[in-house]
Amino acid sequence: MKLKKILLLIPAFLLVITALFSFKKYTETSPYKCMIQMRNYTGEGAYVVISLLNPKGEYEETLYVQGDDDEWYFDITEWWNFQGKKRADIDAITGATISGGERSISVIRIDNDKLDKGYKIRFETAVEDQDYHKDDVEFELTSENVKSKIEGKGFIRYVRMMPQ
């Protein structure tokens, strides 16, 4: 009856394996202050989405969303392709939109082990009935860049990052 024993062991073994893997790998995250300074455009407040991209250029995680009216989210096309399918809970990382000429400071958390590994941070911007900028600001996640000032191409004039 060895076979029977083995057969019994298999589910037990699988259970242990799943149990082991279901413990999410514990990762340290650090907070970063992030200031976004907008250009002097007119019109509605801009929606800004800050995302983490993996080395392949795919969306990995949404770090921050400025703009809490979700009826406009699908205007941020690229990101919506990711978020629209995944529907991650972003309530905790949502803030109000910011208008032309304004500044906002928000705090984002980034996994420590993603630093200097070829990951990228992307700032996407969209304004109702105006343009959409897929990569208004985009930079590599390096220890150098997270304490620097990066110029924007669209609605963002510049972004400043600062480790806390």
Partner: peptide, 10 residues
Amino acid sequence: EKFSLLPKDK
């Protein structure tokens, strides 16, 4: 204002 019809804030 929403439709950007007001003069630009300079």
